[in-house]
Design a protein around this nucleic acid. Structure first.
Lengths: 193, 193
DNA sequence: ACGTTTTCTTGTCATTTGGCAAGTGGCATT
DNA sequence: AATGCCACTTGCCAAATGACAAGAAAACGT
């Protein structure tokens, strides 16, 4: 097992020694999810901390009217988990679904927690993952408040263009906070330019 | 120094022993902020983890057009800090301002971090604070996407009514993601019922 | 290749919200 | 009481977005 991408990912984001990182990486197990399969189902506890090496996923939940709302997209070479459920050990409100076939390496809560306890340097990594997610969410919230839907669309297209290769427009629309109809119109206007 | 409220706050949220909690509480120092004063200024690093015993604060930043956007409100008996800046040691984009005279107890990053390293049980507390903030922000984001401004207003009024006693409507409006004009109209409609 | 299903686009119209400017009311200062 | 300041409200109109329905395009299974 190589797990090279995982090793590198941790190396770039923590101050743990190479030896420690090798130990850590050892504890991750390989996993694959087929296209359309679920990494996490609403109502269950998120117990896997998953480094996705290849593939693409999205997280979604339902609003009070029963509409799907996309809350996140996950690209290759990133961590997939639902912090609120994972750390509080309570059932998740979100589903995380593979939009393409996915593969990577996971570790379960219990074992990860042991690592956090035994390796102070790796703890920083865990915290950084949480804090980054926090900052990204805040950024997204502000952009929904301040920017027009068209600007949000442009920025998503520019910074996360791959999303458009894997997700349906309806899924992207709810992530942007608009309907699929509006997104379609925005795309038409945008194409003119 | 009593710090009773702080002691109780930690007790309810961590598995640390009473003895440990007493040690922890000892390290918090008293602090007060006058009405209108700043707990955190944009551009500086959030270095204080503040348990506010009395008072009311709000966090705000500016969008690209220079408009103030309220990002958070803090009530008495809660923790005040900016996670992204605090944990990454980078300058904050947000200001946190006292809307009334505030008092409470703070601890600095360095010392708090030492505590996290030396007391596993207290670490859970720190993580819980982060995770809770995360969940609250996600909830707010979803409500901006899914609910009408009027519903958001109603819910804020119902669950956080004290905000209306301390903050200006313009500040509340930007927190709700609308203009002060719209909020005013919503209030009029709402009053009719 | 075929028909079926799903996704995407478009039109029409109603609703929400914003931008701007004027007006109202409270409050403090003088 | 007059003044000025500030927060808030209101009216008017424009722009953005949603709801619904129909049609076009694409994806899918057999």
């Amino acid at each position: 097992m190589q797990k090279l991408a995982l090793l590198q990912f941790i190396q770039e984001r923590s101050k743990a020694t190479s030896k420690e990182i090798m130990e850590i990486v050892e504890l991750f197990k390989e996993n694959a999810i087929e296209k359309g399969g679920y990494f996490l189902q609403a109502g269950t506890v998120s117990d896997a901390y998953f480094f996705m090496e290849t593939g693409f996923m999205r997280a979604y939940t339902f609003d009070y009217h029963g509409n799907e709302v996309t809350t996140n997209f996950y690209r290759a070479n990133s961590l997939v988990f639902e912090p609120a459920s994972f750390f509080t050990r309570t059932p998740s409100k979100e589903n995380i679904q593979a939009l393409t076939a996915c593969s990577g390496y996971f570790i379960r809560f219990e074992r990860l927690n042991q690592l956090f306890h035994s390796m102070p340097a790796f703890r920083e990594f865990g915290r950084a993952m949480l804090v980054n997610g926090f900052a990204a969410l805040k950024q997204r919230t502000l952009s929904i408040i301040n920017e027009t839907a068209e600007t949000r669309y442009q920025q998503l297209l520019q910074h996360n263009g791959e999303i458009f290769q894997h997700a349906q427009l309806k899924q992207i629309a709810s992530y942007l906070g608009i309907t699929d109809t509006s997104l379609s119109r925005i795309r038409r206007e945008f194409a003119k330019k």
